[in-house]
Write a protein that binds this DNA or RNA. Sequence first.
DNA 1: GCCCAGGAGTGTG
DNA 2: CACACTCATGGG
Length: 291
Amino acid sequence: MTVRIEIRDLDLDQTLGCGQTFRWRRDQSGRWRGPIGDCVVTLWKEGGALIADSEPHRGDLEERVSTYLRAGDDISVIQASISRDDVLARGLAGLKGLRLVKMDEWECTLSYVLATYANIPRIKKMIERVSSTYGDAIDPEFHSFPTLERMRGASVRDLGRCGLGYRARHVHRLCRSLDDADMASMREMGYDELRESLLRLPGVGDKVADCIALFGFGRLESFPIDVWIARALARLYGVRGTYPRLRGFASDRFGEYAGYAQEYIYFNERVFAGQGACLFTPRDGSSDRTP
DNA sequence: GCCCAGGAGTGTG
DNA sequence: CACACTCATGGG
């Protein structure tokens, strides 16, 4: 059973492969497969339209996929807003298919706590091992992402066996300092209050809080700054410094859709800059040749 | 072997 | 507030 979903700007390879989310797998034919909640979804494009398939069939498949891929975001409007920045403006045409995703809040929280100081292949491995240990088998290849309640019973030792390293201790404390009611109340908070709440959680600092606010709670004004973004901001704008300083710079410059700007910069820095094919060019006089 | 990773926590000046 | 150090480990 498949559904056809109208969504104007979408590149599955960019969106699901860029490193904002960690569980999707691409097969040889270019179809993407991954869990959304308790069902495994297969996505591909046919004649410009998005096709989604779930096994077993879920009646709300279209809604799940539309929410996950933020189908309501009008990329033209967002890019027009970001284009007020002359540095990004010229490179955005090649990124119209790169969308932010809307992950489950808890999945996003744990995923980005695990994502500290590790590379993406390792982050994927940690998440799969945690899922296969504490989640339910929902498919021959996939386990559901473990619930917060289920994770609360995990010992530091067992978490360590998932290859988490020093993160096992953070995760252990995280699960004990949070419940579903907390996640629900955070959905109702304004951005600043949400950010402060997230920062009180074990293993959550500035960068992770912004990732959770963006990819989990859908706060598009959020601008996570990791080593790649810091590098890009130095190269493109000649700005560097502490996290609050860079965050303020991004907020002033990119505004209400700073999160999309962040994803564009991140993608450019990770995928294109390494190949000497940057979409974005520095402002005159702000180039940084000694990063 | 070496370097680095979508950093956070803690202590110090 | 800003910086320095440590944390545990695997991928390239």
